[in-house]
Amino acid sequence: MDTNEKLIYNLQNEFAVSIPPTVSFDQMIAMIAVPVNELIQKDFQRLVGILYRLDVSEPKLRYMLKMHNEEDAGKIIATLIVERELQKIKTRQEFRKNDDEIDEEERW
């Protein structure tokens, strides 16, 4: 599974939205912004829990919301979610690559 497929899979599972594999980055953010905005309106505590579980930086979130207070908060939050998920996928790929370089006898 490539990076884009993993990203789509993770986001679909978290937000119960259907994201086509050919979607652009901006379209993906717009699709995630819809359920994020619903959570802002109807279940803010659940949104906070999701952001915590996804490990979205609270200081960065506060800064972005403050600096772009005229923009849609759901879009800003969706952007941070997508960026964080991409970071995690790339980090896992790097660690997996490093694991492949370790001699079999030295592995745990």
Rank of each mutant, 00 (worst) to 15 (best):
F15S: 06
V17Q: 00
I8K: 05
I89E: 00
V34H: 12
Y63F: 11
R107P: 04
R92H: 13
A73E: 13
N4H: 12
G74C: 06
S24M: 04
K97C: 07
A73W: 06
Q27D: 14
P21L: 14
Q45Y: 08
T79Q: 14
D26W: 07
W108R: 09
L65M: 09
P59S: 07
V56Y: 15
I8H: 05
E70M: 08
I102D: 00
K60P: 02
R46M: 11
N69S: 08
E83T: 10
M1V: 04
Q93Y: 05
P59Y: 15
Q41C: 01
E83D: 10
L39K: 14
A30K: 07
E94C: 01
T22G: 11
E71L: 14
Q87H: 09
A30V: 05
H68L: 14
E101F: 12
K97V: 04
R107Y: 07
Q27C: 06
N98H: 11
I40K: 15
E14W: 07
D72V: 05
K66I: 04
R96F: 13
D55S: 14
F44A: 04
A16L: 13
L65T: 00
L61P: 05
N13A: 04
R62T: 08
V48A: 12
K6A: 10
H68N: 15
L61D: 03
R96Q: 14
V23R: 07
F25M: 08
Q87D: 15
P21Y: 07
D100C: 03
N10T: 10
D103H: 14
L11P: 02
I40V: 02
R107D: 06
M1I: 01
E58P: 01
N69W: 07
